[in-house]
Write a protein that binds this DNA or RNA. Structure first.
Length: 427
RNA sequence: GGAGAGAUGGCCGAGUAGGUCGAAGGCGGUCGCCUGCUAAGCGAUUAUACGGGCUAAAACUCGUAUCGCGGGUUCGAAUCCCGCUCUCUCCGCCA
């Protein structure tokens, strides 16, 4: 039975030290020794059982010949009956080993790209570049949730009533603003950056969640539809990356670039007490996502481009931001390299993440089995990338805070006015 | 939700009273040949994964597995039995 491995077994086997060191840089002591032992045992058993199967095949053929010739083969059949029994047992053992190995692999994070700086936590993420000037307020700027409430364009209170904490309503110009931001981003990425828009399902099944790495490790971060195997997507990355699961793409078509709007749902387990007010950390939020599939040799350059595409949104909206590169200790589980875009939020007096752009190398492609065929050669795994372009709720929060005026109104950024029916000011 | 039909290689499509079928044939693809009956002809070749051997690595070679998925029967299963999934058609329902 063919098992598709989550890591290249041969690679891990022969570059054991290197893999071990790469993973150690992430700060997780990964037990690869265990893997090596299991792998060795598996290969020994596999070899043995394949020898047995070979004998069975050869003898069975012989039995067929004898029988058609009308001769007796009872002795051989008896022997084979025994052999088959043993084969079955060893097959069972191998299957158990496969499961153990696969389980071990599922919990091994991606290896960081060599260019990723070493560090232990978010505090060690180097700032790569900054853009924009922080506005000097002649008054004391208010946090976006206060602005939203006083302008009556965001209703957190009733969101809590209707659904629960961390849910909210947008209303009037607020709802329109949210929609404007979505459309602005989609138009920018499709019109100027060459992405093909897709509108995905907001629920995805277990295979898809495993394909992009949300499962099995992060099940508690997601909402699951009771009685089904469907999960509410935590990001459009899931359905869009899985678009091509179990497919072999035409090499000529790469890179394939998609952008997608979706609502995103996150259980935010373990986030109790953090960002309890406002739009920063909701159970449901909107996001425009950028997703790329490319050749392995292009993924580094594609990550730079994708990041720039996301940055362009902030630039056109006139929102100050900085770009940090996540250090080894702060990177997500599946990522090989990640840039975070952090927007300036006056009420926090700090930069907050508004986009995360990652190169996953072949990590997701291997799990999701997405390949391409280079001209005249075998299928290879593609590299996948994605990034927010951008998180809409946080963008709205940033607009409200950065564009607020002393009289309590909010100026609409010029780039959004065409999407707001020409509206220049909210309030 | 109810009833029926079907799932075979890149595609189309054979193959079921179990045996030498990884699987006929066609198309497509690749390589070579031919080139005045020309929007052609001829020949060859054309799956993937894993393991062993040989390698610097390949190529190569041997083996195993794979005919929707998972089990079962059997010395032996694409072919028989059971379960599941998906697709198609008809009915119902609905945005």
């Amino acid at each position: 039975m063919g098992v598709r491995w989550l890591l290249d077994l041969k690679f891990v086997r022969s570059n054991y030290k290197m893999v071990q060191e790469a993973l150690a840089r992430r700060g997780e002591a990964v037990a690869l020794e265990q893997f090596l032992v299991l792998d060795k045992e598996r290969r020994e058993k596999l070899y043995r059982v394949e020898q047995m199967k070979n004998r069975r095949n050869v003898v069975s053929e012989e039995i067929g010949r004898l029988k058609t010739a009308g001769r007796d083969a009872a002795e051989m059949m008896a022997e084979m009956r025994l052999l088959s029994q043993q084969v079955k047992e060893i097959d069972e053992e191998i299957r158990a080993l496969d499961g153990q190995i696969q389980e071990a692999l599922l919990n091994i994070p991606n290896m960081p790209d060599e260019s990723v700086p070493y560090g232990r936590s978010a505090a060690d993420n180097p700032v790569v570049r900054k853009w924009g000037e922080k506005r000097q307020f002649s008054f004391s700027p208010k946090p976006h949730w206060e602005i939203g409430e006083s302008l009556d364009i965001i209703d957190f209170e009733r969101g809590g009533k209707v659904t629960g904490t961390r849910f909210s309503f947008y209303k009037g110009a607020g709802a329109r603003l949210e929609r404007a931001v979505i459309n602005f981003m989609l138009d920018l990425h499709t019109g100027r950056h060459g992405y093909v828009e897709v509108f995905p399902p907001f629920l995805a099944n277990r295979e898809s969640m495993t394909g992009t790495g949300q499962l099995p490790k992060f099940a508690e971060d997601m909402f699951r539809v009771e009685g089904t195997d469907y999960y509410l997507i935590p990001t459009a990355e899931v359905p869009v990356t899985n678009l091509y699961r179990n497919e072999i793409l035409d090499g000529e078509k790469l890179p394939i670039c998609h952008c997608a709007y979706s609502a995103c749902f996150r259980a935010e387990a373990g986030a109790a007490g953090r960002d309890t007010r406002g739009l920063i950390r909701q159970h449901q939020f909107n996001k425009v996502e950028l997703v790329k599939f490319c050749r392995p040799e292009d993924s580094c350059a594609e990550l730079e481009k994708l990041t720039r595409d996301a940055e362009r949104v902030l630039q056109l909206l006139g929102l100050p931001y900085r770009v940090v590169v996540l250090c080894t200790g702060d990177m997500g589980f599946s990522a090989a390299k990640t840039y975070d875009l952090e927007v300036w939020l006056p009420s926090y007096g700090d930069f907050r993440e508004i986009s995360s752009c990652s190169n996953f190398a072949d990590y997701q492609a291997r799990r999701a089995n997405i390949r391409y065929r280079p001209p005249g050669s075998k299928a290879r795994y593609v590299h996948t990338l994605n990034g927010s372009g951008l998180a809409v709720g946080r963008t709205v929060a940033a607009i409200l805070e950065n564009y607020q005026e002393a009289d309590g109104t909010v100026t609409v950024p010029e780039a959004l006015r065409p999407y707001m029916g020409g509206l220049e000011k909210i309030g």
